[in-house]
């Protein structure tokens, strides 16, 4: 069999999968992109659709609510990913040590991940409840808080409290990925470094971190995509309140498409969200690659 025939067969074999991928991902993507250049509305009538080209994008960029939400989303993403990385790597380092009950603790790590986001959001709403919540009970009993307070009713605090809830739900992904990367590092490297007199910090900085960075890059990219489009946890916990202080970009997309019934500009808004996550992802990859080279 020639190489040419081999290639042909390969394409034939791949064709069903490619068709599915193109149909399930490519078609909606292109359809939404085309929709974003129109004035299409969500109605029960077949109203004529006109092309307005970049007008929807321009309207989004000049919309102050959209810009404010973009700022809040960026804050959510950066703080959220930062905390998840810190906590995830620390927990992974801990779970990489040998101790009794390690297997059970590793298994427990899966629980937050296994919970549906809506369930975890309702749970955290209860934890933060200003009259009956356990967080208030805990902090007052420890003497850290004088009296019960509101967490989700204060505009300056609500977003941070949602971030904490989201970090709890998602840091195990970082921890699990980091742990698997840690287990691949040859022990001899650490032993040799220790013999050469390298401190624990130096060993972490020179051996551990560079070894797990490729794995972390993947998880950062995945988590960024998720964090930029955050909606469900916020919708359940605060519905974007108080005074819109937790409204993120997905709320603007939702409002434009469903409250205003503007399918065209809703599509444009969602493409802008994709663009923002793409920029953030490229930035991360560039930064991490630079560090890896160093």
């Amino acid at each position: 069999m020639t190489q040419q025939t081999d290639k042909k067969t390969a394409w034939w074999m791949l064709a069903p999968l490619l068709l599915i991928v193109l149909g399930a991902i490519g078609y909606p993507l292109i359809r939404t992109l085309l929709l974003s250049f129109t004035n299409a509305r969500l109605t029960g009538y077949s109203d004529p659709i006109q092309f307005v080209w970049l007008e929807n994008y321009w309207q989004a960029i000049t919309n102050s609510a959209f810009r404010e939400s973009a700022g809040r989303t960026t804050y959510f993403v950066l703080v959220n990913i930062g905390l998840e990385l810190l906590l995830g790597v620390l927990v992974a380092l801990l779970l990489n040590q040998a101790f009794r009950g390690r297997a059970i603790v590793r298994a427990l790590l899966i629980i937050p991940l296994a919970l549906p986001t809506v369930v975890s959001a309702i749970m955290w709403r209860w934890i933060y409840n200003p009259e009956f919540g356990v967080l208030n009970a805990l902090l007052t009993q420890l003497g850290l808080l004088g009296q019960y307070r509101s967490y989700l009713g204060e505009p300056d605090l609500a977003m941070n409290m949602i971030i904490l809830a989201d970090v709890w739900k998602n840091y195990p992904i970082v921890a699990l990925v980091a742990l698997s990367a840690l287990q691949l590092i040859p022990k001899e490297l650490f032993e040799a470094a220790a013999m050469d007199g390298a401190s624990a910090w130096t060993r972490f900085w020179r051996i551990t971190l560079p070894s797990i960075i490729p794995a972390l890059t993947v998880v950062i990219v995945l988590r960024t995509i998720e964090a930029v489009k955050v909606f469900d946890i916020i919708f359940v916990m605060t519905k974007g309140g108080p005074a819109s202080s937790t409204r993120t970009l997905s709320f603007e997309v939702y409002q434009e498409a469903f409250s205003s019934l503007k399918a065209g500009s809703g599509a444009a808004y969602s493409y802008l969200v994709v663009l923002i996550s793409a920029v953030l992802i490229f930035l991360y990859i560039w930064l991490l690659r630079r560090q890896e080279r160093q």
Partner: peptide, 20 residues
């Protein structure tokens, strides 16, 4: 109740039903 600013109807019911 200042927490009203984060309450929906079910929260109101719980606070009222608890005698607060």
């Amino acid at each position: 109740n200042p927490n009203s600013r984060e309450y929906a109807e079910e929260d109101v019911r719980r606070v009222f039903s608890s005698g607060q």
